[in-house]
Design a protein around this nucleic acid. Structure first.
Lengths: 344, 344
DNA sequence: TTTATGATAGTAATCGATTGCAGTAACAAT
DNA sequence: ATTGTTACTGCAATCGATTACTATCATAAA
């Protein structure tokens, strides 16, 4: 582990002051004779000089890193969001510090604090159960925060929301319009606001279509530990099994997200139920995989990649001190594919 | 943007020197009277003191960050690797700096250099086409590197390999043992060593089973731009379409990875071909999704999560100056599910 | 009583880079 | 000849923390 070459080493070798070297190598507009400039550049090259950003950061209080905290990138929805953020960040010479909270509130706090200690000035977070006190404290200390997907009701946090309720409404209404009357709703635990909203949309649509909400058709899973993505799939299977025990089967199943819908489809197939001939299925999220299964899943689109890009832009705006005082609500869109059939 | 509280502020308020504050707050074993200790801790709490790691890092030349460069986390294989790395890193109070190279060599170089500038001491990388010169230079300067998945033939780089050839062999042999004689191989461009190896395994198995390698049954796609994950799915579809035009159809299709296999299945289904009754399909990777589709995919397991955990451990070993002079080769395993049927 | 010892606390240098301020030399303007 | 201006270049402080070294004082050992 040899000592790295510093600006002082180059200065010494070139017989100039480190100030001059800094001026050349940091490409400042400060005038330096082209003679010295060339000499220094050559020496830097020759001696494999690579600047130490830590020194620079300490002095200038600037950095080009933002933090991103999501439940888990094993969920394609979030990995798509992260990719969107990174794409724009890269173009602006920014870096992403990625953190998977794994639905663990303590983990979330730890990451948040670590990021702050490392002088990160801005964070994009999809927070399940945030720590009000910590968050408020960091914000008071100057941290800029964009909340995506899951709302955080604290001042000075910008939100990128998604109209889950309308999404739930659209999916359900679509099924009703296709003639379905017995529409089941299969969902992960409703501890998150987003899931609560989807359910409300479901209810709205049923009511509007003159269909009573039947408790037996609404299946809610227990909270699970560990890998959320895998858990949702399993939950879809489990709840579908319960549904299949009903004396009168539903003709359509609405799942709270695509992953759960995959579970539903998997279980139905295993029981020989044809989709969509016997039972229709609709999902939520429109992750990439939803078009890769057979038959391709009809679902509600949530623009994850765009959400990521937007979040980055808003964060930059905030960090530049801009008055980005507006929350944004993204709109759902129905993506018709092949898992929903009309009822004659 | 108020100025943050520093160790000196606390020292001034407490009427002690910053040295003492540092000793208390960094929990060093240096003795400080419990009286002062308590006072300082209380003050730190009261004034919301949060240490500045940049200062610490500059002085101590230590940090707790490692870099991870993968093609893209939208590929579940890599997101699983990353999750594995992060899991162990977290337990050791380390952080992950994530970079998606998006199969772009220039991007890869930029990230590598940025990481080094930020004083990252260790990197785990799955490199498509690495820059020999840059990599060698950084290693000479003390960077520790673990290559996963894709080999890098440079000294001082530790490798975690996977026996792709054996995997390709196992998949093909399995099909042959089930009575298949017309076994197609569908693959992304063979520019990566890994893919080349799988093909060799395919060939080995055919030869061993007394089956001639038929050019018409080996379909190789063109290199694609952009989102690799999505591209592989589309390639699977495209190549399958070509296969279906053959006068004599294959009875089994072996895809170079699960994503491609999904494309194969999707296209077959669209043409009304039943899986596995008409045509058997086998994948490669065993990503989580492979068990979530209907019917669940028979495939070759590549232990991505473990690979991540292992990579982290080896990197730490290297960084501690340990003599982890051994490359590791992970072994494939056949995962039997429902997309392969025996031929009578 | 004197000296050795240990517990505490402070001084000041240091990490690598930036930058305000000052100094110098050359040349132009008066 | 004097002053002003421009173009460089260097000095030294600074960012926030750590730490080797020194200083002080109380207590124990001789």
């Amino acid at each position: 582990m040899k000592k790295r070459v510093t600006i002082h080493d180059i200065a010494r070798i070139a017989g100039v002051s480190s100030a001059t070297v800094s001026r050349v190598l940091s490409k400042s507009s400060y005038p330096v004779s082209s003679e010295l400039r060339q000499k220094i550049e050559q020496l830097a090259e020759e001696y494999d000089y690579i600047p130490n950003m830590v020194g620079k950061q300490l002095k200038t209080h600037t950095n080009t890193t933002i933090g991103v905290i999501v439940p888990t990138i094993s969920n394609p929805f979030y990995s798509s969001v992260v990719l969107g953020i990174e794409e724009v960040a890269r173009r602006n010479n920014y870096h992403v510090f990625l953190c998977n909270s794994l639905q663990n509130p303590k983990q979330e706090d730890e990451y948040l604090e670590k990021l702050f200690e490392n002088q990160v000035k801005g964070v994009i977070i999809s927070s399940i159960s945030f720590n009000r006190k910590l968050m408020a404290r960091l914000i008071k200390l100057g941290l800029k925060v964009i909340a995506i997907d899951q709302p955080i009701d604290l001042p000075d946090i910008l939100q990128i929301k998604f109209d889950y309720r309308k999404g739930g409404y659209m999916a359900t209404k679509y099924l009703a319009d296709q003639g379905h009357r017995r529409i089941a709703y299969v969902t992960a635990p409703m501890d998150r606001p987003s899931r609560q909203s989807i359910f409300e949309g479901y209810r709205d649509a049923l009511l509007e279509s003159g269909i009573a909400v039947e408790d037996g058709l609404v299946k809610v899973s227990e909270p699970t530990e560990g890998d959320e993505t895998r858990g949702e799939f399993e939950n879809g299977k489990l709840l579908t099994r319960q549904l299949l025990e009903l004396s009168e089967l539903p003709t359509a199943i609405f799942a709270c997200n695509d992953m759960t819908a995959f579970g539903v489809i998997s279980e139905l197939s295993a029981h020989g139920v044809k989709i969509p001939e016997h039972i229709s299925v609709i999902g939520f999220d429109n992750i990439d995989f939803s078009q890769m299964i057979a038959p391709p899943l009809t679902t509600i689109n949530q623009p994850s990649y765009e959400m990521g890009k937007l979040a980055y832009s808003m964060l930059m705006e905030l960090m530049k001190g801009g008055q980005a005082e507006m929350d944004i609500v993204l709109q759902p869109k129905l993506v018709e594919r092949s898992t929903v059939a009309a009822i004659k």
